[in-house]
Design a protein around this nucleic acid. Structure first.
Lengths: 216, 216
DNA sequence: CAGCTAATTCATCACCTGATGAATTACAAG
DNA sequence: CTTGTAATTCATCAGGTGATGAATTAGCTG
């Protein structure tokens, strides 16, 4: 994020008049805009972020945004689109033994959220949960692309597997919310290894464990 | 909610001119505004809801909002404030035996969310998660007022109890998100009894069960 | 060099936002 | 009836919003 360019800033709009026209060299303005948008959407959601804020954070004229993107919607979609799509992230999960799959699931979720994709994921969640209309999109993604992979070859009737899938979602979504969105301590700063050890058993119970009785 | 008056055009000055001045009888405009605000904040979050939308949905002139409330912030705070504060909702939870408390916790959460408070809770979540600044408020509420009650008299070192508390939050928050916000099926329409039976064991494990090993 | 294309700034538009203040009307108390 | 107070509408403000189009400049291709 090469935002405000403190030192020798030629594009300082306050001081040395930033004359018009193309700049020399490779000015990655498009990427700067995307990066600034990702940060701001992650902090304030879709409606809480204005294009002028994005332009300012990117050190760029507001008009540039409309030069590179058709509008705010496209900017949001491109800046926030999942850096790795579910199919790719979950590759391999479907191949493991369901009886020991929970650990891999939690590990995959943690690896994804500890990666640079975190800002985009936060932005996606913030922009998506803030509006009822957009939660439908989130629901479709989770239902059709994530859960189907996670529940592959889990034994049981289709109804039972679907129920187990939404229960798994319960634990995984809760982990993401508490650790990365609300950042509740001490879980927010716990070591990933510990998080796996602590939560995977419950995920495993939802996956293949007994549902109608006490597990202990 | 006497909303948008679908048949005849609302702003038709030809027909039923809404002349100025006070209306006859008891017109609960203040309550109408609060109710409409609750609905809209729940659907579109804080920034995604304009005062003019609220006024239209309440069948009221936009100026009324500023007559009854000092501004958008106060309207949000009053319309969305938790209908029952955590102390009251969780009364009794702290008195039960920790070894069997999970069922009561899940039951309490479900009862709260199935009640009329749901709209307010949704609004609170939507308005709160959409902004990084406001999630701090949510974090404080959860940490100081909710978890402390839930974890009362749970045995263990303070560090361990705090960790168990955030793990409980994991499962409870995930349940709320999946069932009431994202509305993922089949969990979204499952009977409360079934939800209790399915999720309480995992909550109980976080509360008092073994953490470092497989629970089954 | 000329000519094209892309990057950048600027001025501006139409609209929506939250907010204010005055004018009008009803109800209640004296 | 008079007076005051609260409820309601209206007109309007200053500012922010997303978006458009023209003007300017740089780099690339021939």
């Amino acid at each position: 994020m090469k935002a405000q360019d403190p030192a020798g800033g030629p594009p300082r709009p306050g001081t040395s008049t930033p004359r018009r026209g193309r700049r020399g060299g490779t000015t990655g303005s498009r990427e700067d805009i995307l990066e600034a948008a990702r940060m701001l959407f992650a902090e304030h959601g879709f409606e809480g972020t204005s294009l002028r804020q994005v332009a300012r954070a990117a050190g760029v004229d507001p008009g540039m945004i409309h030069h590179f993107f058709t509008g705010k919607d496209e900017l949001f979609a491109l800046s926030v689109e999942l850096p790795a799509d579910p199919e790719q992230v979950l590759a391999g999960v479907a191949d493991t033994d369901p009886a020991t799959r929970a650990e891999l699931i939690v590990r995959t979720v943690l690896r994804l959220w500890e990666s640079p994709a975190q800002a985009g994921l936060l932005a996606f969640l913030r922009g998506t949960i803030g509006s009822k209309a957009k939660t439908a999109l989130l629901r479709e993604i989770v239902a059709r692309r994530v859960i189907s992979r996670i529940m592959a070859s889990v034994p049981g009737t289709p109804e039972e597997v679907a129920l187990r899938g939404s229960l798994v979602a319960t634990q995984v979504v809760g982990l993401m919310m508490v650790r990365y969105v609300v950042r509740l301590e001490p879980l927010a700063s716990a070591a990933p290894e510990d998080v796996v050890r602590l939560t995977a058993p419950n995920v495993q119970r939802y996956l293949t464990g007994p549902l109608g009785q006490e597990p202990i």
